[in-house]
């Protein structure tokens, strides 16, 4: 047992090597990158390194984190330019050479260092019509649904609200359409409600006129960065776009709707 402990310990020590982290420091008025050197070892993630930098050389470095397990969505940042969770980015996934850049999400105002103000997302969420179920199917106030129908929206409920999809979306990031465009996270949220087998609300008018669905030009960047691997573009945004086409642009479906009862 002692030999095993010693062996593990020595392996861990020998694997550690100094690495430079180029961390953005500043606030909403501006900032710049600062270089910090710290030792990294096997199994470490970027968040470990940031905590180590806090402990060793920058105790005032602000960063938001909570679970360290990729489930709370707090430690979103841009690592080597890619929106990622710091706690789920292993050091061995990054190029072995050169400094590792860590900066806050660029689609939101920087509060301080790596911490951003993501309150836009919560305000936008309030503008989406709430779940509105049909009348219960049974006298005891319960409903009956096919599992296959529920499975479709179950994917959307994996969202941890890390807002990496919002960060990478160029409509927010580069065009600053925050007032007119709710963003991919909230399209996923809307899809979960709009496609729910029990829901009776119609959100298509809001999607087109208030929530800026038409601004999405299907770059699929949101899907690529999602740590929960939600197929955001193909399973939520494009199906919503198609429903908006049904409702507002397709003359044939508009014609057929005359003969069909409302939802």
């Amino acid at each position: 047992m002692a030999g095993q402990t010693k062996n593990t310990s020595s392996t861990g020590a020998s694997d550690r090597a100094p690495r430079t982290f180029r961390v953005w420091r500043g606030d909403g008025q501006g900032g710049k990158f600062h270089d910090y050197s710290t030792e990294v070892g096997e199994g470490m993630v970027v968040l470990d390194a940031i905590h180590q930098i806090q402990a060793e050389s920058a105790p005032d470095l602000a960063c938001r984190w909570n679970c360290k397990a990729g489930k709370c969505g707090s430690c979103s940042a841009e690592i080597n330019g890619q929106p990622r969770l710091m706690c789920m980015t292993r050091m061995d996934q990054l190029p072995p050479e050169g400094p590792v850049t860590v900066e806050p999400m660029r689609a939101f105002p920087a509060i301080r260092d790596l911490v951003t103000d993501v309150s836009h997302n919560f305000r936008a969420k309030k503008s989406i019509k709430k779940f509105s179920p049909r009348k219960p199917d049974a006298p005891d106030g319960t409903w009956r649904m096919q599992q296959a129908d529920v499975d479709r929206v179950q994917e959307f409920r994996k969202c941890i609200e890390c807002f990496l999809c919002q960060d990478v979306c160029h409509v927010l990031r580069d065009h600053h359409k925050h007032e007119e465009f709710v963003g991919p996270r909230l399209f996923v949220y809307t899809a979960a409600l709009e496609m729910h087998p029990l829901d009776t609300e119609n959100r298509l008018g809001d999607l087109k006129n208030k929530h800026g669905l038409g601004y999405c030009n299907i770059t699929k960047c949101c899907t690529k960065v999602c740590p929960e691997h939600i197929t955001i573009t193909d399973n939520s945004i494009i199906p919503l776009k198609e429903r908006v086409v049904d409702e507002f642009y397709d003359p044939l479906t508009r014609l057929f709707r005359i003969f069909k009862p409302a939802k």
């Binding site: 929106p83 990478v168 160029h170 580069d174 065009h175 600053h176 800026g212 030009n217 770059t219």
Partner: peptide, 23 residues
């Protein structure tokens, strides 16, 4: 180049005038 790639800057002339597929 709208955008050139994910998380890569795009030409500045569009800016807030971006219309996407909305118009």
């Amino acid at each position: 180049a709208d955008p050139p790639s994910c998380a890569v800057g795009e030409p500045g002339f569009r800016g807030k005038k971006y219309r996407g597929e909305a118009k």
